[in-house]
Design a protein around this nucleic acid. Structure first.
Lengths: 224, 224
DNA sequence: AAAATAGTGTCTTTAAGACAATATAAA
DNA sequence: TTTATATTGTCTTAAAGACACTATTTT
């Protein structure tokens, strides 16, 4: 019995959010869980993850970051019997509203901090998996330009900094952050337009550059 | 069909080595492969990896580093049919000789560079897996004190540097390396003895300290 | 003009890179 | 004394941390 589950992360309301579905059947009926489903015959693992992503969110898997997080197979993790699950981590831009998937269960965003704060809101071993997904996302932001994937196609420096602040749960110095981003070749490219709207000086607009690796990395302070 | 395979790495002869078994049966008879076997009923993934490790090398899994590398499930990766494999990465000190396991196949160390240099020496998708294992090991040495696990319990600074040089395939400045290691709290602890034996000034002996994370990390130069 | 937000300049501190000389042993 | 190996000192350079001011808009 092999399943593929998804940890789909985004940033909204200045916080890291995870896409969860409410379970409609036993076990763990009524509790929240990561979206996922069974691996089909002759289906590649990554293909299965992309299919689940499409089914649950109507998102195009080709557009966003999708990578294998890990495989979880403790014999007692599913009370029905032995189920091993391969979990994929997805990084998505802030979506207006999670589209109800073709599967019956309602999907919704939840703040990671609130979900992990309470015991027994998540089904199976999904709390443990979410823990590892968050740690992976934090490390990815240190070493790659992946933070831009959390943003819309065009974004401001403040929005990009907001992604780091939400994922890392810490405030960053705007000056030092801006210097690091702009001095890293290919991280962002300025778009010759500025924001209109509210009060305050308009912000420069950027889009993601061609670079994928951050060298030297942008390390979280304090050595964890 | 779920299997657990092992990528067991060590350092010997100034090179990174991988433990391989010769396949005695089809498919890929006569070719080299990572050791592994089927997951047993009600067996945890990590337990299965430790069991395979014991069967193949008579090594105690509790003593060395063992972590999940990834899961590989391309439908065509095994010509016999659908087999998904969970691969664990093991880091071992330089062993005198790989003990022939309880399984019939003969196990032997092979230099990673020589194996990856040639096409079609490895069975299944094991070349791709080995690639990822090496990259994981390289990254681990940047961010953790894991290099000491490649060494015997007591080692010299030169031996520790040799581990980095073998895994990273580059020479390191002895002065700068020594400074980095000794200035990182808890990386190594001096043992009040010096080497006897050959010519030259005796080397100070060290053993692994309590630290596991390197902060700041020891980055490979050049940004890859 | 006041309020709100965006952006920049520069000094300090830390750590890595580069380089050459000294120390301690065996032969 | 020669050879072999280990170890240490210091200058330079790169990058992060800390800090306060200027710029551009709306109301």
């Amino acid at each position: 019995m092999l399943t593929v589950d998804l940890a789909i992360l985004t940033v909204g309301d200045e916080a890291l959010q995870i896409l969860l579905v409410e379970r409609g059947s036993e076990p763990f009926r009524g509790q929240l869980a990561l979206p996922g489903g069974f691996l089909r015959d002759q289906e590649d693992l990554l293909d299965a993850a992309q299919r689940e992503l499409r089914e649950e969110t109507n998102l195009d898997g080709a557009r966003l970051h999708l990578e294998q997080l890990g495989t979880y197979g403790r014999p007692e993790r599913d009370p029905r019997g032995r189920v091993v699950t391969v979990v994929y981590l997805a990084i998505a831009p802030n979506l207006p509203t999670p589209v109800a998937g073709t599967d019956a269960a309602a999907a919704r965003w939840a703040e990671v901090d609130k979900v992990l704060g309470r015991q027994d809101v998540l089904a199976f071993d999904h709390a443990e998996i979410l823990d590892e997904a968050v740690e992976r996302a934090r490390a990815l932001l240190e070493h790659t330009t992946l933070a831009t994937t959390f943003c819309q196609e065009v974004f401001t420096m403040g929005e990009l900094r907001g992604v780091y602040e939400a994922v890392w749960s810490m405030r960053l110095d705007p000056r030092n952050f801006s210097r690091k981003v702009t001095q890293t070749q290919g991280f962002v490219e300025p778009v010759g337009k500025v924001k209109s709207g509210g009060p305050g000086r308009p912000a420069q607009h950027y889009r993601a550059g061609p670079a994928t690796v951050l060298y030297p990395p942008m390390l979280r302070a304090g050595g964890r």
